Simulated assay, not measured.
Amino acid sequence: MKDLQSNSSASLPVYETFYAFQGEGTHIGRAAFFIRTIGCPVQCSWCDSIGTWHKDHLPSKIEKIPVVELAQMARMSGASFAVITGGEPAIYDLTALTTALHDQGLQTHIETSGAYSIRGDFDWITVSPKWNMLPLAENVQKASEIKIIMENADSAEEWWNEIGEYCLPNEVRLSAPDIWLQPEANSLSVELLDGITRAVKSHPRRYRAGVQLHKVYNCDMLDPNSKAPISLK
């Protein structure tokens, strides 16, 4: 693969781009331009972006878009930052894209499982760990925020036992990141929500309760470029 850092004509396989607002985490409610890449080896059964990786839903022609064009699209949207997501965007070298976005005056955010080395200059890193492929310690250590998908009422404790030591302040990150507890969208049971509440109340300096606000507003779908969610069922 050619070095994307020095290739001004670099392009990336993109599933969709759209203008909406960030529906999760610290930047919730802020207008954002989303760049969703193709491909994800992690492949969670409850994934809400199945179209980016499942063979039955992949577009027949995967479009590669020049990173300069992606950056121009992001700037023209009016957003102050771009979110690079997937799929799993970190399977690609994103250096050329983040450079192009910065050249257009936009901040760069990434949403990743943390299972792959992050290549690119990011202003904000969201790591959402998955059991299928555990995150690299280095990614957890430099994460701006952690987003834990609560599959059961004990998920917060289970993930803290797995990655908690890497969530502490370090030489790169002087304060501990916010850890958002996000209910898995297909399992909004009272037991699950109560489990999140108990975890937040038990560890008020560690956890924050999360929600997928963009799904409440359905704001993604107001952009005609956004693709409708796909289910495996």
Rank of each mutant, 00 (worst) to 15 (best):
M1P: 02
L4Q: 07
L4E: 06
Q5L: 07
S9W: 02
A10P: 03
L12V: 04
P13N: 07
E16N: 02
T17W: 04
T17I: 07
F18P: 00
Y19M: 05
F21W: 04
Q22A: 13
G25V: 06
G25T: 09
I28A: 14
I28F: 07
I28K: 14
R30H: 13
I35D: 06
G39H: 04
C40K: 01
V42L: 01
Q43P: 02
I50E: 02
W53P: 00
W53Y: 09
W53I: 00
H57P: 01
E63N: 13
E63T: 13
I65S: 09
P66E: 12
P66I: 05
V68G: 00
E69V: 07
E69C: 01
Q72D: 07
M76G: 04
G78K: 06
G78M: 05
S80Y: 13
F81L: 13
T85N: 03
T85V: 05
E88H: 03
P89T: 00
Y92H: 11
T95W: 13
A96W: 08
L97D: 05
L97R: 01
L97E: 05
T99G: 06
T99I: 12
H102V: 08
H102M: 09
Q104A: 13
L106E: 12
Q107H: 15
T108C: 15
E111S: 11
A115C: 11
Y116D: 12
S117R: 14
I118L: 15
F122H: 15
V127P: 03
P129S: 13
P129E: 11
P129L: 11
K130I: 05
N132Y: 05
N132H: 09
L134H: 05
L136R: 14
E138M: 15
Q141E: 15
K142M: 15
A143V: 15
S144R: 01
I146W: 08
I146S: 12
I148D: 03
I149E: 12
M150G: 03
N152K: 09
N152L: 03
W160D: 11
N161C: 10
C167Q: 12
P169I: 11
R173P: 03
L174W: 08
P177H: 12
D178I: 15
I179N: 07
W180H: 08
W180S: 02
L181V: 10
L181M: 08
L181Y: 08
Q182W: 06
Q182M: 15
P183G: 06
E184S: 00
A185C: 06
N186L: 12
L193S: 04
D194P: 00
T197Y: 09
T197D: 12
R198E: 13
A199K: 06
V200Y: 04
V200Q: 07
K201S: 10
S202W: 01
H203A: 12
R206E: 10
Y207H: 01
V211L: 14
Q212S: 05
V216S: 06
Y217W: 04
N218G: 11
D220S: 08
D220H: 13
D220K: 08
M221L: 10
L222W: 09
P224I: 10
N225Y: 12
N225R: 14
A228G: 07
S231M: 03
S231A: 11
L232S: 08
K233I: 01
